[in-house]
Nucleic acid binder design. Structure first.
Length: 494
RNA sequence: GCCGGUGUAGCUCAAUGGUUAGAGUAAUUGCAUCAUAAGCAAGAGGUUACAGGUUCGAGUCCCGUCACCGGCACCA
């Protein structure tokens, strides 16, 4: 393997499989896919990891409710996740399940190491336990000192427990985050984490006595491992780590862990602490994106305002869904969506934007009989259109470097608008001396747009290149245009 | 309650303390007819949540209030 080629390792969180795939899962994963595709396009060696988190009390309970074994429940839901990712064109390199034996084996080794180093020690966990919920509660869970679900006062229970010396690493982690050795983006999330770390970290219990569905602790097999501790390790085992800190996978450290804001804090505390404990390099970056609200309200099943990814795909198509989610807001901030707004944007940007542009240019190309029409690239470079394309590539790449996915899309759409203006200005549908070269330049620009779209809308990108009948080498492009069906049919009122 | 964030055009969002607060979109008007009735252009649209303060100058900094969002460690 050529070590001079840059590598890019990106992860999504592993999703908890107690329920089906929702919009948040889809958003993170699509974003990760776009980034992975972009870096592949740049010729980098890319590894894109996603997967599922399958242990823990919640799964145990959900399975019990359905009369299934936990493993069965996981298998069923994993199938649904994978189907969803296939539908959305997610180009992951590995789908890890925390029940995979290679993961479990490596986790046990890691725990042994931490135990031997004294970073895991035996102690007692004291907590408020609600017999009704069969769960420990925090003070903030309680209403008037009682469990809100069972209206009962929880009991104080002590149980044998193994604790991880998280407290030992707080200061070191704070320094690394402050100095961007562990980069947390956007900036406000970094601030939030730093503020939290100021107060220091407490040791956490990493064993569970009452949860049976989990990885047994190697030094106390009657207890299972707390899910976070083992789940994080997927980022290592997913690229082939076998539990030896001296033998790290070639893709480690991760270039970026992508996630929603709810789990940013644990990723910025427990996970780095585990790595420091194992003396393994920290990931380079944690990138945190926001949530979607629906018409200003939190999405929730009880409000009945949930938008499922499948519904989006049905209405807007796969690429429509990918586009609408990523362009809905500034990547890294919260966004608000509604069916009305989504439809408006679909029509404006996809049907009337890229769809109509491709349609009109292809028609003109066909009318002119472009069955094998060559354009020498040097004929474009010095023109206004060539300059525009160069500028667009620059903006596009700059946006990607800063994870501004919405800005990258913006830059493409500016080029689309430029093409429409150009068509108008040159009146390219009319016969003239420069008509042919103008249309060829437009076809070329559209082929460049298709290349830029590959990361975001792989299917559309393909369809465009197919209609252009593009064959190219370093010096020229040859077009054999053929009109096909609309890229994004306009949606009418409904 | 504590910690952090957000609040800018009808909607989605921009704006290192420095011209007259900008884009896109929607609506309006004019032009165009290659195109999925799509395109181009123009005007209009603002008490920057509210109230005070610092400053020659505040959307930006400080104080307070309100609204919304997230986190608060055994749910993951």
């Amino acid at each position: 393997m050529n070590s001079k080629v840059k590598k890019f390792y990106i992860t999504t969180p592993i999703y908890y499989v107690n329920d089906r795939m929702h919009l948040g899962h889809a958003y993170t994963t699509i974003a990760a896919d776009v980034l992975a595709r972009y870096h592949r396009l740049k010729g980098e060696r890319v590894f894109f990891l996603t997967g599922t988190d399958e242990h823990g009390g919640k799964i145990e309970k959900a399975a019990e409710k359905l009369g299934k074994s936990p493993k069965q429940l996981c298998d069923d839901n994993v199938r649904r996740f994978k189907k969803g990712w296939e539908k959305l064109n997610i180009s992951y390199d590995n789908f890890i399940r925390t029940t995979d034996s290679y993961h479990e084996e490596a986790v046990k080794k890691a725990l042994e190491i931490l135990h031997k180093k004294g970073l895991i020690y035996k102690g007692v966990y004291r907590g408020l336990y609600c017999l009704g919920c069969e769960q420990y509660k925090t003070e903030s869970d309680l209403v008037n000192g009682k469990c809100p679900d069972h209206k009962k006062k929880p009991e104080i229970i002590e149980e044998e427990s193994y604790l991880f010396r998280l407290s030992k690493f707080g200061e070191e982690i704070r320094k690394k985050i402050k100095q961007d050795e562990l980069l947390i983006r956007p900036e406000d999330k970094k601030k939030e984490v730093l503020e939290f770390l100021k107060g220091g970290l407490k040791d956490i219990s990493i064993s569970r006595k009452k949860v049976k569905w989990g990885i047994p602790l190697p030094f106390a097999p009657h207890l299972t491992t707390y899910v976070w501790i083992e789940a994080f390790l997927n980022y290592l085992t997913g690229v082939g780590w076998e539990g030896n800190p001296k033998k790290l996978p070639e893709f480690w450290p991760a270039d970026v862990h992508l996630m929603a804001k709810d789990i940013a804090r644990v990723h910025a505390t427990i996970w780095p602490a585990v790595l420091l404990g194992l003396e393994i390099a920290l990931p380079k970056q944690i990138f945190v994106h926001g949530y979607f609200t629906i018409e200003g309200q939190k999405m929730s099943k009880s409000l009945g305002n949930v938008i499922w990814p499948e519904e989006l795909i049905e209405k807007f198509g796969v690429d429509g869904t990918r586009y609408l989610l990523l362009s809905a807001c500034c990547f890294g901030k919260d966004g608000d969506i509604s069916w009305g707004k989504l439809k408006e944007k679909y029509n404006a940007d996809l049907a009337k934007g890229i769809g109509n542009l491709v349609s009109r240019v292809i028609t003109i190309g066909e009318t002119l009989g472009f069955k094998s029409e060559a354009l020498k690239l040097r004929q474009v470079h010095s023109t206004e259109i060539g300059k525009q394309i160069d500028a667009t590539w620059k903006n596009y790449e700059r946006a990607f470097d800063e994870f501004k996915l919405d800005k990258a899309l913006d830059s493409i759409w500016k080029l689309i608008a430029f093409c429409d203006q150009y068509i108008e200005k040159k009146r390219v549908w009319e016969e003239s001396k420069e008509q042919k070269i103008c249309v060829l330049c437009l076809l070329y620009t559209i082929s460049e747009i298709a290349k830029m779209l590959e990361s975001f809308l792989p299917e559309t990108s393909n369809k465009i290149l197919c209609q252009l009948g593009l064959k190219s080498d370093e010096k020229k492009c040859v077009f054999a245009v053929e009109k096909k069906e609309s890229l994004f049919p306009r949606l009418n009122s409904k």
